[in-house]
């Protein structure tokens, strides 16, 4: 599997470590009224689709950046790769 890093170009899968669904970017507000429920769903429940999946990969043996990769879990075809920092900022997260 080859991941086309936005800055570094195509890189072998072995340079990366997988985390999971990119929904992990949206950490709930711990002070929300229903924080308990939100955190239960955030930490433990997953969509786990057979098809397009947005997921977080860590370029551990490269530039150590985090990426949001859009990949089909049935064919393993990757259709999009973005820097996670760009995605998070677009979603209004981070400073």
């Amino acid at each position: 599997m080859i991941i086309n890093h936005p800055l570094l170009g195509p890189r072998d899968r072995q340079e990366f470590t997988y985390l999971g669904d990119a929904c992990l970017i949206d950490r709930p507000d711990w002070q929300a009224g229903n924080a308990m429920d939100q955190f239960y769903e955030y930490v433990y429940l997953r969509d786990d689709p057979a098809g397009e999946h947005r997921e977080l990969w860590y370029h551990e043996h490269g530039d150590r950046s985090w990426l949001v990769v859009t990949r089909n879990t049935v064919t393993h075809e990757i259709t999009n790769v973005e820097l996670a920092s760009d995605v998070a900022r677009k979603q209004g997260r981070s400073k």
């Binding site: 170009g9 195509p10 072995q14 340079e15 043996h61 490269g62 530039d63």
Partner: peptide, 14 residues
Amino acid sequence: NLAAMEPGSATRAL
């Protein structure tokens, strides 16, 4: 990708 590395380039890899 060694062939793509010109003089004056650096990369981190396994």
